[in-house]
Design a protein around this nucleic acid. Structure first.
Lengths: 234, 234
DNA sequence: TAGATTGTTAATCGATTAACAATC
DNA sequence: TAGATTGTTAATCGATTAACAATC
């Protein structure tokens, strides 16, 4: 009987919500917002699952991590469930966000209507390009000025943001990241194609447009190979 | 002995590459491109793992799905491994891509240098906004004209794209999707905050900027709660 | 040979899902 | 009560990882 390796410390079971569940909560949230807007009062796990393209058993399991918010034989109260998900996600509080890099992507992010409606407030826009510094950008209805990234150091204290978005080119990303972390940012959304080095405790999520296309291309290739092999087999 | 449910059809083992591995291959590819550019000839799994922030055992396992391309006691030939990964991902062939929706995000995508270098060629830019139609955009060094999305139907045949990018607002996304699918697009990268309905066999990857921020906010909230509970415990 | 590093094994972990008891 | 739907169980699956034999 090979009695080897000790079991891990059960990190997820200590009352936490599994990471896979967390990534789906925003989908449920969005679908419920749409339903609430249509005046839907009650929803079953089957209906919500279909709206989010998720298995209904998985959906019920996901929701059960938040608590017991449904009624057997009836379903879920849309508004109530919406609130519970928003609370779990932290959308019931304000999140000041700093955006560094205001090219096309940064513009798109700054102007994205989906931010403000979820508690994210853009409190600072920075860039290194002198042609962009001083530019006025309309964020959530009010005009903001793009500031020199060299002012980041001095202004981070008053901005008090714990979330930062990096939309710079590859070259400046790590430097910007260090600066943000130095000033108390502990969550970073990174659009630059670099693996950022951050100290323990800082979360980074990377969104890479090229990576997404490459994954699609992989499956696309597989599909065409499938067609070829089926053709030659007949 | 409850002898229940039959085992599944082992879909992943039929020579395919696991999905989790596929999502990491672009990272390895990028890191290897950077190494090759620096003139590095040889790399160990340990080094490549560190550059991509991945466990080295996982890395070796990932690479083993492609074949046996390393040398024990030595490491991997950078150029050779690069080629093998590119081939597996389908980056050794041309991928014509159509972009629909040329707002800030569409602009950022069209101008992204990381596309052309990986075999993705933007062959069409479409928008519904009359103010944008006719605009010239520089894509990979050459100027392209933004066309009316109503011309999509007529021009898809000559464009011959199997990959489409949807960067429209939420409202137009499903309609655009249907149009693309109707004309042979079988892989879609969707930036609109909607779950697209597609027929069997069409792959959709959704990138949602708000979702990413929400996931960060969740963890950020958890971090601050941790600090609070530690404070009250002391 | 001695040292290094791959490729693979096997254990563990986390996520998915069908099924169903609980209960409205 | 009869019908409906949740919340949970338990089985299965896929992904991760330490360890190490194979081998350069």
């Amino acid at each position: 009987m090979p009695q080897s390796r000790l079991p891990k410390a059960q990190t997820s079971a200590r009352g936490g919500i599994p990471e896979a569940t967390v990534t789906r909560l925003p989908m449920y949230h969005r679908a419920l917002v749409a339903m609430a807007a249509r005046g839907v009062l009650l929803v079953s796990s089957e209906e919500l699952a279909e709206a989010t393209a998720v298995n209904s058993a998985k959906l019920r399991k996901d929701l059960s991590f938040l608590g017991s918010y449904g009624t057997r034989g009836v379903g879920y109260d849309v508004e109530f469930l919406l609130y519970q998900i928003a609370r779990a996600l932290g959308l019931t509080q304000e999140w000041p966000v700093v955006i560094v890099g205001v090219g096309n992507l940064g513009h798109a992010l700054a102007g994205y209507p989906g931010f403000a409606s979820r508690g994210f407030t853009v409190v600072g826009l920075f860039d290194a390009d002198p042609r962009r510094i001083g530019e006025q950008i309309v964020v959530a209805g009010t005009s903001m000025t793009v500031r020199d990234v060299r002012e980041l150091h001095a202004s981070m204290h008053e901005l008090n943001a714990s979330i930062g978005v990096i939309a710079t080119p590859e070259s400046g990303a790590q430097q910007v990241c260090d600066l943000l972390v130095e000033h108390g940012v502990t969550s970073i959304l990174n659009f630059a194609p670099v693996i950022l080095e951050v100290p323990e405790g800082v979360d980074v999520r990377r969104v890479d447009l090229a990576t997404e296309l490459q994954i699609l291309a992989f499956h696309e290739q597989r599909k065409s190979q499938l067609v070829l092999s089926e053709t030659s087999a007949s």
